[in-house]
Nucleic acid binder design. Structure first.
Lengths: 194, 194
DNA sequence: TGCCAAACATGATGTAGGTCATAAATGCCT
DNA sequence: AGGCATTTATGACCTACATCATGTTTGGCA
């Protein structure tokens, strides 16, 4: 779905500051959110306060549809990472977008499939593999979006929050992977070598 | 998508015997599978041979679409649990079904959303919670489909394969939950009490 | 009803990763 | 350049769950 098309249809943009919360678990979904600029993260927080990153969404992407589509309260928090401009499309408008905007429903299907793929992969990892293996998997996943030579700009804490590990474990894991030549790092940052 | 409609359109049914493998990781997806009768399980198998159940599909459901839709090799095995009759719909036919069958694309969107929901929930669990908590979560999830008094017909091994735990841990966990009155069990079987 | 396989059960022991504490390196802002 | 917050780092200890080993119970079916 093209943001420009939404603007053309007269949807209003809202500004969100860093760390503001767009929705939280238990809330009844009323809108789907399209990001014009900025970045948000979707996280669940366990009983003992540990964050788990379910996903990160950037400019051009949308989030919050699954809950709207099956009409169930949100499971996660969505929190603004960087100051963002976001278009909230009401449930009704979203459904009519699906009907009226040519190609959108197919695009939505593909987007959902892609996320399902990612989650299946992570589930398998979390369920069965050991720390370094998990790390290797998300690192490769993240590196895939980069050009050779570019560096990953995620903190070890974020890697921990994506893999369900603890920072210390991530730090030690990266050390090991790096020592074994499985990843390259430059001044602590992981880089894509090829 | 109604199976009857597919049959009306002349799609052929294939029979699969228990334990036969419909597809395995790495294979290029060529069809989406609709189950007429029977049951299959989608599992990933880790390096050390541990199965993780990604999902179970029964009569009236379909599987294998995400890989087809985003054109990526399968991540999991799909294995027949009970003798099944299955309609394999080719990629091309599947796409034209989406286009031509009224309501199907919306239904597909909802199905994908529902699965995404389940996986998000499980991810959060696997990432952050302890054994008994995980157990409690899938047990409640599974019990939700049952009537009061009915019993869960899954083995402890299956619970283990869904939660990434080991059988022994599941057995001990169920004992604890049962002792604490958090679940009811009758002759070892978990039952829905209310 | 008797056999065999599958499913439960339970104890003993090991270990990966969590936890806690403390500190060094970075980066960022003025 | 200096100062503060964030991120990375490292060691010592602990604990939940895996692992292994060895039963016992249950259920299907010949």
């Amino acid at each position: 779905m093209d943001i420009l098309k939404l603007l053309a249809r007269g949807f209003a943009t809202k500004s969100f500051s860093k760390n503001s919360i767009i929705y939280e678990p238990g809330m009844q979904p009323r809108s789907v959110y399209f990001i014009k600029t900025g970045e948000v993260r979707m996280v669940t927080i366990s009983d003992d306060g540990k964050e788990f990153i379910q996903g990160v969404f950037k400019a051009g992407q949308y989030f919050g549809e699954p809950a709207v589509l099956i009409n169930r309260p949100y499971l996660a928090f969505t929190i603004v990472n960087k100051p963002s401009q976001i278009i909230a499309v009401s449930k009704e408008d979203f459904f009519s977008l699906i009907e009226s905007e040519p190609g959108f429903s197919m695009e939505l299907i593909k987007t959902l499939s892609k996320r399902l793929f990612y989650k299946s992969m992570m589930l398998e990892e979390l369920a069965s593999e050991k720390a370094t293996h998990r790390l290797m998997t998300i690192i490769n996943y993240l590196l895939a979006d980069l050009k050779v030579g570019e560096q990953l700009k995620v903190t070890r804490q974020e890697l921990a929050d994506m893999t369900g590990l603890r920072v210390e474990t991530v730090i030690r894991g990266i050390k090991m992977l790096s020592a074994d030549g499985l990843i390259s790092t430059v001044k602590g940052k992981i880089v894509r070598s090829r």
